[in-house]
């Protein structure tokens, strides 16, 4: 087999596996969310379908697939159908540059647990996710519904505003690591200081500030509570996806959860050492353990997401904008200056 065709085959297999795992993960993230929020509110949550409601996501997907798919009469048909796709594709694309495991050896085969390591990896993610705004904005506009339009407008304003602090908080990580490739950023975080503290970026001096600004803006970017203004149900019915039903709504839903997972994966990669963790045992276990560490870190972030959702009330819209522009952006700018000073002083 030639080099090109084996590359093509390998990448295709990786893509299929990653997308399948991702969609499965989304299904069980919804289960986790419902279960954890229920317990936070002293309820049981899903408990009828399967053991502890474990089959509930499958039932939900079946319900979504079988529901009637309606298109409002006054809607702009083409854009109405296109919008969920525009939202979904970038969300799925951005996972391709994230490294989720070390290079592993299975017999004679060498597998790299990353679809592709671009040398502009982190910028690629920003480029791709910035296109995702159109899905939400157009979905709101094409439905020809006032609430949807308001949701779409709010969401595009919110996402543009918080993209700024999101990008700026990543700049300081780039200043410290000196590379845009996510694979290299993870490689640089291997090893320990004094034999105990792992060399994760979060423990490098000013980077915990950028982690804070990153994660807060990320919650706003993914439209999650307490920043879920685009779909504030007591003001806007359901925001930009009010008119969507069946699998088109399912696409928006899927997008939101994929974005949550992606954002957690980037946070893990940039600040928490990616797949680094203690490895031991035989060779195959050493190959698998990084995957396990990576997934557990993501699950920790997802639990944090759900915890915030169960705890904090929603912001008012002017508070949201003021918080973004008057607090997060100046803070992340100051952090860039501080990090540059630290880097220059060390050099």
């Amino acid at each position: 087999m030639s080099e090109f065709s084996s590359f093509l085959l390998g990448t295709t297999i990786k893509c299929i596996v990653v997308i399948a795992v991702l969609i499965g993960a989304v299904a069980y993230t919804t289960w986790l969310e419902r279960k954890v929020v229920a317990h936070l509110q002293i309820r049981w949550g899903p408990s009828r379908v399967g053991w502890h409601g474990l089959l509930q996501p499958i039932a939900d997907v079946l319900k979504l697939l079988l529901k009637e798919d309606m298109t409002p009469g006054q809607a702009s048909k083409f854009l109405y159908v296109l919008a969920p796709l525009i939202a979904f594709v970038p969300a799925a694309l951005s996972i391709t540059v994230i490294p989720f495991g070390n290079v592993a050896h299975f017999g004679s085969q060498t597998v790299r647990f990353q679809i592709t390591d671009l040398n502009v990896g982190i910028l690629f993610i920003f480029a791709v996710t910035s296109v995702g705004v159109y899905g939400v904005a157009l979905g709101g506009w094409a439905s020809n519904n006032k609430y949807s339009l308001m949701g779409g407008l709010r969401s595009s304003a919110q996402m543009i505003s918080y993209e700024l602090s999101l990008g700026l908080s990543v700049v300081s990580v780039l200043l410290v690591t000196g590379t845009l490739s996510l694979g290299q950023i993870v490689d640089l975080q291997g090893g320990r200081w004094f034999g105990i503290i792992p060399k994760w970026n979060i423990f490098v001096f000013p980077l915990f500030i950028s982690f804070f600004t990153y994660f807060v803006s990320a919650i706003a970017e993914t439209n999650r509570l307490p920043f879920d203004l685009p779909e504030a149900e007591n003001e806007l019915v359901a925001g930009f996806h009010t008119e969507y039903s069946s699998m088109k709504f399912g696409m928006f839903f899927l997008t939101e959860y994929i974005n949550m997972i992606t954002v957690s994966a980037i946070a893990t990669t940039l600040f928490f050492g990616g797949w680094h963790g203690p490895t031991f045992g035989p060779l195959w276990l050493r190959g698998i353990l990084p995957l396990f560490w990576f997934v557990s870190k993501i699950v920790a972030f997802l639990l944090f997401y759900i915890w915030t959702r169960g705890t904090l009330p929603r912001f008012r819209y002017d508070q949201l904008m003021a918080f973004g522009w008057k607090f997060l952006v100046p803070l992340s700018l100051a952090n860039v200056v501080l990090t540059s000073l630290v880097v220059a002083w060390r050099a």
Binding site: L123, F126, A127, V128, S130, V131, V133, Y134, A137, L138, L153, S156, A157, I160, E163
Partner: peptide, 15 residues
């Protein structure tokens, strides 16, 4: 190109 034009400028246009 994508970040600046598609992700920022055109979003404002559409907005």
């Amino acid at each position: 190109q994508v970040i600046v034009y598609a992700g920022a400028i055109m979003v404002l246009f559409v907005f």
